[in-house]
Amino acid sequence: MNSFDLRRRLTNTLMTTLMVGAALAVITPLGIIFVHILKMGAGSLSWDFFTQIPKPTGESGGGMANGLAGSALMIGLASGFGLPVGILGAVYLNEFGSTRFATAIRFSADVLAGIPSIITGMVAYTLLVVPMKGFSALAGAVALALIMIPIVLRTTEEQLKMVPGTLREASLALGVPLWRTSLKVTLVSARSGIITGVLLSIARIAGETAPLLFTALGNQFWSKKMTEPMAAIPLQIFNFAISPYDDWHKLAWAGALVLVVIMFTLNLTARYFGSSRHQG
């Protein structure tokens, strides 16, 4: 073997080792974080977490029941605003998608998806909090909906595109109007893929904190109305994590574990729907 070949082989071995090393360097910290969340979260989680609201500083115990309820309410309302826009907007792109206007919509959606969520929060603040003279869960839900729309739009469009054109034709040739064909044939055929996109978008907004800072604001107590400040799990994790109290840190870890479990459940369910797509 000549020295040229030897050098080539050594370079190859070296670079391969570096790539393996990079993979390890990527996986390790992520693994450590995951283990910490599991360990610290499991150690702090109790029944109280799901039933109690936070205790005042200095008292131990308490939970994040109000945050869980607040998150659920705001996600629900955000989905109510965001899903119709995202899904039916995608139907438009799928049916009339070859125009310049449609390209502009796709481009806007991609740009929207890249805007930092804290800016979405600022805009929701000026459009809703200022005129309504107060922080509110409603403003929080709108901010979350704005984040959700571009995600749902693009994933739904991808799924609709995969529905064979022959099915639309079959329906139209039966004398079914376009709108019924779109809703009952195209959308229904793509439903499992659309569910995937919806679940992923819900997972995304469930963990959003920044857009809620100046909209829902957070609340130490139960909130009764959507027009009042409301607690949310990510907000509570943030506030408790930067507090100096050990008890609150524990609650934050428990909240993180619950959030991660919700997140992974949504993601894995989404993957399940995504993979069963081809079985119709």
């Binding site: 119709p84 826009v85 039916l88 907007g89 139907v91 438009y92 792109l93 049916e95 009339f96 449609a102 502009a104 919509i105 806007s108 959606a109 740009v111 929207l112 805007i115 800016i119 979405t120 600022m122 805009v123 000026t126 459009l127 704005l146 729309i149 571009p150 739009l153 109007p177 376009l178 709108w179 019924r180 779109s182």
Partner: peptide, 30 residues
């Protein structure tokens, strides 16, 4: 039916451009 449907989905799809423009406008204005 088709005209109404097309109008609705067109409005919803267009709202995405509108949202982006409103966001930029509000940020500049404020």
């Amino acid at each position: 039916g088709d005209t109404i449907f097309k109008g609705i989905i067109l409005a919803l799809a267009s709202s995405i451009i509108l949202i982006l423009l409103i966001m930029i406008f509000e940020m500049v204005k404020e």
